[in-house]
Design a protein around this nucleic acid. Structure first.
Lengths: 219, 219
DNA sequence: CGTTGTGAAATGATTCACAGCT
DNA sequence: AGCTGTGAATCATTTCACAACG
């Protein structure tokens, strides 16, 4: 078994997903091995960085050879938790919520969106991509029944915190938040924020300077 | 004039947008002043962190008082470049592209989406939220004509790099990339990546551990 | 008093450089 | 030869702590 689990640096965790994305693309091309140098070049990282990141989780490299692609894909999926499927739901059937429902990359990664909710009675009951929009009152029942662990919040800022509270009460453990507010959650729940205005603002900032080239650590 | 402009830490730049978001909300409530401590509490940052971040750009605090809200909003907008409007375009009229077009938070922040393009002849010419979808061949002309500086790429991974190249040729200086690939761009263009699968994957990782509480530096 | 701005100290992340494996 | 894993060194960011100010 893996003894590891000290304290993984946050930047390392963010890069793990990028490694997996690259390696999966190599796997699709039937590449057998890849060195830390090659992987680093594709992501503008040093070879040492790549090795150190991966070494936090075990020793899956082969001296003289590099990393075996299929093996590394499997290890990374295990580390990230995507070796098994996750059920999720979307709260908010506005533009963004409806756009995410048919986003088929989620499926391919093992994220299954199994319900969509909305607080507006005029929207509840309508059909979105084959899913009937559910009222918020159905949330606790469906989260339990369908084993929903992740949720995407795509509601206006004003209601986001209340939605988060309901999700957490229902047993959700991870929230992807598109609302432009900081959610207050307790320690057992993790939150990832996607604020599209903030993202554009960052570009405006870079563009207002001479411009740095791309942010050294993107994503 | 501002003499500053040494080397702003990347994490500081990311937080700037969050400061602005909070302060704008305080402004809407007619709060007159805020201390670094109060601002930090709202974002789970230390007061020293807030002060140091802001001090990179000048001295807008008032000892004994804190920061004056309207003044700080103005300063932050100036720093981030959103004191003036930015024109942008969307490339890709799929689910995500179409969802972003009516996203009215962009408008309110001064980001004006003035065109949407798609490479698929079957989609070109159709109407999306009052905008006619344009063919890629119109891109260079419209970018110049409408002074488009920012672009959102919402096309499949395969075409993203080619789209980026065309945008940069046309004169765009910032790209928000929703495609799950790293874009190769030259130094004068900045790129921000939004990979939704990666975002969910990060949640799965946190959820697979005991779970750290929220990522210390979200966003 | 309360609160800023800022050097100095502490913590955290990245890069270097090399022993050791294949 | 080629490449990993890793301690040690460097570099970056955060926190501390306090003088100075309103």
């Amino acid at each position: 078994m893996k003894p590891a689990r000290d304290k993984i640096p946050t930047p390392t965790v963010r890069r793990l997903s990028l490694y997996l994305r690259e390696i999966e693309s190599l796997l699709a091309q039937n590449r057998l091995t890849v060195s830390s140098k090659q992987l680093g070049d594709r992501l503008s990282l040093t070879d040492a960085q790549v090795r150190k990141d991966l070494a936090y989780f075990g020793q899956f490299g082969h001296p003289g050879i590099g990393y075996r692609v299929p093996e590394l894909v499997e290890e990374l999926r295990k580390i990230l938790g995507t070796d098994r499927p996750w059920n999720g739901c979307i709260v908010g059937a506005g533009n963004i919520g409806r756009a995410l429902l048919p986003y088929n990359r989620f499926q391919r990664k093992g994220f299954h969106i199994v319900a969509i909710f909305d607080g507006d009675p005029k929207v509840v009951g309508t059909d979105v991509e084959g899913h009937k929009v559910r009222p918020m009152s159905d949330l606790p029942g469906l989260v339990a029944e369908r084993d929903i662990k992740l949720a995407i919040i795509a509601v206006p800022a004003e209601s986001a915190q209340s939605v988060a509270d309901q999700l957490i009460d229902a047993g959700v453990v991870g929230i992807l938040n598109f609302a432009p507010v900081r959610l207050d959650v307790h320690d057992k729940v993790s939150v990832g924020d996607v604020d599209l205005s903030v993202a554009l603002e960052q570009l405006a900032f870079q563009a207002s300077l001479g411009v740095t080239g791309s942010l050294d650590d993107r994503e």
